[in-house]
Lab assay of single mutants.
Amino acid sequence: DVEEQIRRLEEVLKKNQPVTWNGTTYTDPNEIKKVIEELRK
Rank of each mutant, 00 (worst) to 15 (best):
D1P: 11
D1Y: 13
D1G: 11
D1L: 11
D1Q: 08
D1N: 12
D1K: 10
D1T: 14
D1F: 12
D1E: 11
V2K: 05
V2T: 06
V2W: 13
V2D: 03
V2Y: 10
V2A: 07
V2S: 05
V2L: 12
V2R: 07
E3M: 14
E3A: 13
E3S: 09
E3G: 10
E3F: 14
E3T: 10
E3I: 11
E4L: 10
E4P: 03
E4W: 12
E4K: 06
E4C: 13
E4Y: 13
E4F: 11
E4R: 08
E4N: 09
Q5G: 04
Q5Y: 11
Q5F: 14
Q5W: 15
Q5L: 14
Q5K: 06
Q5N: 09
Q5A: 12
Q5I: 15
Q5T: 14
I6V: 06
I6Q: 01
I6L: 06
I6K: 01
I6W: 05
I6D: 01
I6R: 01
I6A: 04
I6N: 01
I6E: 01
I6H: 01
I6P: 00
R7Q: 08
R7P: 01
R7S: 07
R7H: 07
R7I: 07
R7A: 11
R7W: 07
R7D: 04
R8P: 01
R8D: 06
R8N: 07
R8E: 12
R8G: 06
R8H: 13
R8S: 07
R8Y: 15
R8A: 14
R8I: 15
L9M: 09
L9E: 01
L9G: 01
L9R: 00
L9V: 02
L9A: 01
L9Y: 02
L9C: 03
L9S: 00
L9H: 00
E10A: 05
E10G: 04
E10V: 11
E10L: 14
E10P: 00
E10C: 11
E11K: 05
E11M: 13
E11C: 12
E11Q: 09
E11V: 06
E11H: 07
E11G: 05
V12S: 15
V12T: 09
V12I: 13
V12H: 15
V12E: 11
V12R: 14
V12M: 15
V12D: 12
V12W: 12
V12G: 15
V12L: 15
L13V: 08
L13F: 09
L13E: 02
L13D: 01
L13T: 02
L13N: 02
L13I: 13
L13G: 02
L13Y: 06
L13K: 01
L13A: 07
L13S: 04
L13R: 03
L13P: 01
K14W: 13
K14M: 13
K14C: 09
K14S: 14
K14A: 14
K14F: 13
K14G: 09
K14L: 12
K15W: 13
K15R: 13
K15S: 14
K15H: 13
K15Q: 13
K15F: 12
K15D: 08
K15M: 14
K15V: 05
N16M: 09
N16S: 08
N16W: 10
N16T: 07
N16F: 13
N16D: 06
N16G: 15
N16H: 11
Q17I: 12
Q17A: 09
Q17E: 15
Q17D: 07
Q17Y: 15
Q17R: 06
Q17G: 10
Q17F: 15
Q17W: 15
Q17P: 04
P18Y: 07
P18H: 08
P18R: 05
P18T: 12
P18V: 11
P18N: 06
P18M: 08
P18G: 10
P18I: 11
P18L: 06
P18A: 10
P18D: 07
V19T: 05
V19R: 00
V19M: 09
V19E: 03
V19C: 09
V19P: 03
T20Y: 15
T20E: 15
T20F: 15
T20W: 15
T20C: 13
T20G: 03
T20V: 15
W21Q: 02
W21F: 14
W21N: 02
W21H: 07
W21R: 02
W21V: 12
W21S: 02
W21D: 01
W21I: 14
W21T: 02
W21E: 01
N22P: 02
N22I: 02
N22H: 09
N22M: 13
N22K: 08
G23R: 00
G23I: 00
G23V: 00
G23A: 02
G23F: 03
G23N: 04
G23Y: 02
G23D: 04
T24K: 10
T24D: 05
T24R: 13
T24W: 06
T24Q: 13
T24I: 15
T24S: 06
T24G: 03
T24P: 00
T24L: 10
T25H: 06
T25Y: 11
T25Q: 05
T25A: 04
T25K: 04
T25F: 12
T25E: 07
T25D: 04
T25N: 04
T25V: 13
T25S: 05
T25P: 02
T25C: 05
T25G: 02
Y26D: 00
Y26T: 02
Y26L: 13
Y26H: 02
Y26G: 01
Y26R: 00
Y26W: 04
Y26N: 00
Y26F: 08
Y26P: 00
T27P: 02
T27I: 05
T27W: 10
T27G: 03
T27M: 05
T27D: 06
T27E: 05
T27L: 05
T27Y: 10
D28M: 04
D28C: 06
D28W: 02
D28R: 03
D28V: 03
D28L: 05
D28G: 05
D28K: 04
D28Q: 06
D28E: 10
D28F: 03
D28Y: 03
P29F: 07
P29K: 08
P29D: 03
P29G: 05
P29T: 06
P29N: 04
P29Y: 06
P29H: 08
P29R: 06
P29L: 07
P29A: 08
P29V: 08
N30P: 02
N30G: 10
N30L: 12
N30A: 12
N30E: 14
N30R: 13
E31L: 08
E31Y: 04
E31T: 05
E31N: 03
E31G: 04
E31D: 14
E31R: 02
I32L: 09
I32A: 03
I32F: 09
I32E: 00
I32R: 00
I32P: 00
I32V: 07
K33M: 14
K33E: 08
K33A: 12
K33R: 15
K33T: 06
K33D: 03
K34W: 10
K34H: 08
K34V: 06
K34F: 07
K34Y: 07
K34S: 07
K34L: 11
K34T: 06
K34A: 13
K34N: 07
K34E: 05
K34I: 10
K34M: 11
V35M: 11
V35F: 08
V35L: 15
V35P: 00
V35W: 04
V35K: 03
V35T: 03
V35H: 02
I36L: 13
I36Q: 01
I36E: 00
I36K: 00
I36M: 06
I36F: 04
I36V: 04
I36G: 00
I36A: 01
I36R: 01
I36S: 00
I36W: 03
E37M: 11
E37W: 06
E37D: 12
E37L: 11
E37Y: 07
E37C: 10
E37S: 07
E37A: 14
E37Q: 11
E37V: 06
E37P: 01
E38A: 14
E38I: 12
E38R: 12
E38L: 14
E38H: 11
E38T: 12
E38G: 08
E38V: 08
L39M: 09
L39I: 05
L39N: 00
L39F: 03
L39D: 00
L39Q: 01
L39A: 02
L39Y: 04
R40C: 04
R40S: 04
R40M: 08
R40D: 01
R40I: 06
R40W: 09
R40H: 04
R40Y: 08
R40T: 04
K41R: 12
K41L: 13
K41E: 09
K41S: 10
K41M: 13
K41G: 09
K41W: 10
K41T: 10
K41A: 13
K41H: 10
